[in-house]
Design a protein around this nucleic acid. Structure first.
Length: 659
DNA sequence: CAGGTTCAGTTTTTT
DNA sequence: ACTGAACCTG
């Protein structure tokens, strides 16, 4: 506590009523949250089990859990809730499912499942139309609107059509006993706002609320926060409007302003001392973000030394750019004896990682890519999860359709269409229709046999669901379903079979160490919330990730590649007039750097089949030029670079000899 | 019905 | 370059 600076201490000690902490980048906001939790518990102000700390990503929840674990020894922190908004909403629905007409074991549809439904409802629509419609539905949900409310609010034909689609989409979901990601927020809000008893019970349960990154709340999340905090509003919200980078999924930084209106007693504390970045990095970041209009004035300062010059590199193309970055990392790793984990490469879009990976591999530099093919998006994992979903939730037609065809069991499109027809006229979910003898008799013999074999396996798994642990059930499922055998048959070589099998083992491990609860459906639902960024990181590796994924992290050496107009700012954002958010994105990237920063751009890139000329990002012109060192402007730097190239070349030759 | 082949479209960020 | 959809064949 005594290491805290005065505003940090004020934020920690303020425990009655609403508090907003405007925390600049690197100003120790996580530390304040952790200290505050410790203080609330130690002072007896609130027992751990009535404190909830809410984050936006699983990654930050995990990080916070670790830091709390280090700060609070023993069992004092037992019962503390630290999770994402979505995980909290899920927990809420698992308890209050009856209030929104959901049955136990309900499924969570991921984006792909949602897209498939929308596509099906809009027969014949092109993929981008489907995505657009899905986004409209998502926007309505993030605004906290029910289908009826959306219809009432719709102006003009297009909006009306979208609202009607939302209605049909939602009807599907409830027929499937399923919710999508957005419902995890919207439905709890609906329950809390419409049911005083339940709201009172939850306020008893959660006596103090802390919300991290609250500039990222969307309207539905803000309403959830208000309902949980109640009139008194015992909460601490921590946020930074300069780091708001999720407007595209409904985040509304105006919620920070709304908070002052809704809670007249709101206290505001500003954290303006940055402990992370070199002074030079901070000057550059401040100059950039000064180009955005500001509601809350905040002046970040640092008493750190100036650190290294900020390098701006012009490259021939992305391969050249990647080679330069990799060479520089290899050079500094040796020259400064810096561990690989000191380095981070940031980019706007995940697709930009490819050339970088190639270049790092060539130099034998170990790296970890955050956000590669998501674990949960792997075919074998999705297959197994579909089986599990169906075991827990017979109404889940989406899970049925996937499970029944993986592995293949001679039930094809024609038979499934027939089955759907029968299910519809009998008002049954597909999996129930598939169990009826009458239906089986109407299908071709081969398909009928396939289906009854499938039914037997599902029945066996349901019989064991109550007695086996979740992990054992999953293992039984992987074996019984034939997924394992199919995987072996599919893979050409043993190595790839073992690799994919390891994914299934990992899934089982998640169940093993995962949150307890007994109910398989609950576990499957929690798994659905895991994202691509949650896989183990750490280790002594160079880190590669998108600018979005980098929020909250810090590294000694940061490379931001693709600083081109059209890439950063992204052209879609420019078209939509979201330049300010793109600027904040670069601001977030720059403020990750503790000591040194590189900004690079290419003159051209290969896009699909043609070469495209690129211009340097307009943001580079907004930086104080005196702080930058352009490539080639300095003979000393050039000499250094020559050395790097030589060492990169040596390393490459060495790598080839080794290979 | 399943597995293979060709061919078009494709790239923003995440729970 | 890489993926998924459409089409073709045993």
């Amino acid at each position: 506590m005594h290491d805290l600076n005065p505003p940090q201490r004020a934020a920690v000690l303020h425990t009655q009523g609403p508090l907003l902490v405007l925390a600049g980048a690197g100003s120790g906001k996580t530390r304040v949250i952790v200290e505050k939790i410790a203080h609330l518990i130690a002072s007896g102000r609130m027992p751990a089990k009535r404190i909830a700390a809410i984050t936006f990503t699983n990654k930050s929840a995990k990080e916070m859990r670790e830091r709390v674990g280090k700060r609070i020894k023993g069992d004092a922190a037992d019962g503390l809730t630290i999770c994402t908004f979505h995980a909290l909403g899920l927990k809420f629905l698992q308890i209050e499912h009856a209030a929104v007409g959901l049955k136990r074991g309900f499924s969570i549809f991921d984006s792909d499942d949602s897209s498939a439904q929308v596509k099906d409802l809009m027969s014949g629509a092109k993929p981008d139309e489907v995505e657009a419609a899905k986004n409209l539905i998502s926007r309505a949900k993030n605004a906290g609107l029910s289908p009826d409310e959306a219809l009432a609010a719709a102006r003009g034909n297009r909006e009306k059509e979208a609202a009607l689609l939302y209605q049909r989409y939602q009807a599907r979901l409830s027929a499937f006993n399923a919710v999508d990601f957005d419902d995890l927020i919207r439905l709890p809000v609906q329950v809390l706002e419409g049911n005083a008893d339940i709201a009172a019970a939850w306020r008893e349960r959660i006596g103090y609320l802390l919300v991290d990154e609250c500039q990222d709340t969307n309207d539905a999340q803000y309403r959830l926060l208000k309902m949980l905090a109640g009139e008194r509003g015992d909460f601490t919200c921590v946020g930074d409007d300069d780091q708001s980078i999720y407007a595209w999924r409904g985040a509304n930084p105006d919620n920070l302003l709304a908070m002052a209106r809704d809670y007249p007693k709101l206290q505001i504390v500003k954290l303006e001392q940055n402990y992370r970045c070199s002074n030079r990095v901070l000057r550059v970041a401040n100059a950039l973000i000064a180009h955005n209009p500001h509601e809350h004035l905040k002046k970040l300062w640092s008493d750190q030394p100036d650190g290294d010059r900020i390098r701006v590199w012009e490259c021939r193309d992305n391969d050249h750019e990647a080679e330069k970055v990799a060479a520089e990392i290899a050079f500094l790793h040796t020259a400064r004896n810096a561990p690989w984990s000191d380095f981070c490469i940031l980019f706007r879009g995940n697709f930009q990682s490819r050339p970088l990976e190639k270049a790092l591999q060539l130099l034998r530099i170990p790296y970890h890519l955050t956000g590669g093919t998501a674990f949960l998006e792997r075919q074998e994992v999705k297959d197994a999860l579909s089986w599990l979903r169906l075991v827990a939730n017979p109404d889940d037609d989406t899970a049925f359709l996937r499970a029944v065809q993986s592995p293949k069991r001679e039930v094809g499109a024609t038979s499934l269409a027939k089955l759907a027809e029968l299910a519809q006229s009998a008002h049954l979910p597909l999996s129930r229709a598939a169990e009826s003898m009458a239906a089986l008799r109407q299908l071709p013999a081969r398909a009928g046999n396939g289906l009854s074999a499938f039914n037997d396996i599902i029945g066996d798994l349901r019989d064991h669901a109550a007695t086996l642990s979740a992990k054992d059930l999953l293992l039984r499922l992987i074996e019984r379903s034939g997924l394992l055998a199919e995987l072996r048959a599919q893979c050409k070589d043993e190595a790839s079979f073992q690799r994919r099998r390891a994914n299934l083992d990992e899934l089982a491990d998640w169940f093993d160490g995962g949150p307890r609860g007994g109910n398989v459906g609950d576990l499957a639902a929690q798994l659905a919330l895991l994202s691509r960024n949650d896989k183990d990181d750490g280790g002594n590796q160079v880190r590669l990730m998108s600018l979005h994924a980098a929020k909250g992290l810090e590294f000694r050496y940061v490379f931001i590649v693709g600083c081109e107009d059209g890439t950063l700012p992204h052209e879609i954002s420019v078209e939509e007039g979201n330049l300010e958010e793109e600027r904040r994105l670069l601001y977030v990237g720059i403020t990750r750097a503790k000591q040194a920063l590189w900004l690079s751009y290419s003159r051209q890139t290969r896009r699909f089949r043609e070469l495209v000329r690129l211009k340097p990002s307009r943001f580079l012109d907004e930086l104080p030029q005196s702080e930058l060192q352009r490539d080639g402007a300095d003979p000393v730097a050039d000499a250094e670079r020559k050395k790097e190239r030589a060492s990169a070349g040596l390393a490459a030759i060495q790598a080839m000899l080794d290979g």
